[in-house]
Amino acid sequence: MVIRVETMRMESTLKKDVHPGEGNDEREAQVPNVRERRFEVDSNFEGWRLDQFLANRIPRISRSFASRIIRDGDLTIVPPRRAKASMRLLLGDVVILREHLEPEEVQDDEAGILYEDEVMLVLNKPAGMLVHESASVRLNTMTHYLQRLGFSEAEPVHRLDRETSGVLVCAREHRWVAPLRGMFATDHPEKIYRVLVEDPRGVWTPGREQTLETPLGPCAGSRLSIKMGEGRLRALTHVRALGQRVVRGYALSDLEVRIETGRQHQIRAHLAMAGTPVAGDKLYSRDDAFFMAISDAPEDAALLAQLPFERQALHAWKIALKNPKTGALLQVEAPVPEMWFEEA
């Protein structure tokens, strides 16, 4: 049995602010924007000073900074005792640290459920929304979006970059996380992307098909540790050109891209190596200096003006995978964002 889910073109919507106690979303407004971290004291830490324990458990902080957290932060000990830097921890103690974060803009109005059954939820992730929490972002994530919808056990089983939009598969309950993640690791569901690339030489004439197969690895000539280049990891990217047009003075080609392997930044790296980087890609379409500059000043108008779009034009368009419970083949399509339809 084959289940097909197709969607219409997506209209753009606005973000909304979530302020604890006064948000637009009543469910989220009831919950302060607080990240809670719990550290249990096992036999390895029994008898340690509290400041020493925190400095060990929290990466890249000193004992003096840990002491400031204990003195000025929102920290409690269970069983209840007055927290002091010099206090000695007991086996079984739980140290609870709450980080009070600033209000965030969330993009719930741009996200949506494309498909759901008792095993999985397939979501439409908007560009700009993270899949999981980061050091600076908590609420504007797909994991918290699922919680706001009432899916307390739901969890994404693969990743999409922050600026990538489209299909995101999630387990509906904890018991389906491992089977679905295993499917992505071994069966490699068919994943098809839509990509707009800078193509000033007109390389991707409509109808052209090509497989990009340069092995990938860390980019040897780059100062950026996250950047990929030619390496030793097998990578296959199948490209079919759909059309060409000019937007904001840039000659662009619209590509359908299917990947067999799932290397880091595979599509972005392969297309950049072909001389046609993803439009709006801050890492691969410009040099290292540009990426470092825009990372430090992401809203700098002069820097953004050097790109066709403010975000990379990479969209997880379609996915096909089997339901691990029923064996039925599921095919889901996410609507193509408005940037694909901008006039010249």
Rank of each mutant, 00 (worst) to 15 (best):
K227S: 05
A85G: 03
I113T: 10
R268N: 10
R162V: 02
V257Q: 14
G23W: 03
R71P: 01
I61K: 06
I61F: 05
V34A: 11
I319L: 05
T214S: 06
R138P: 00
V34K: 15
H174K: 14
L236N: 05
A293D: 10
V278N: 04
Y193C: 00
Y145E: 01
Q266K: 04
H132A: 00
R4N: 05
A320Y: 06
D17L: 15
G150C: 08
R148W: 05
V137A: 04
A178W: 01
G262Q: 07
L97E: 00
N124L: 08
P215V: 12
Q331K: 15
E260W: 08
F39L: 14
G202R: 02
A154P: 05
V157H: 07
A293G: 03
V18F: 11
A328Y: 06
Y115S: 08
R159P: 02
G249D: 01
L149M: 14
V78C: 11
Q264F: 07
R263L: 05
S295W: 02
L330M: 09
R162L: 02
I259G: 13
V131W: 08
D74L: 10
V336C: 06
Q147A: 04
N44D: 12
L321N: 02
R98T: 00
M142Y: 08
Q107W: 09
K227R: 15
M228D: 04
G21P: 13
Q147P: 00
L212A: 11
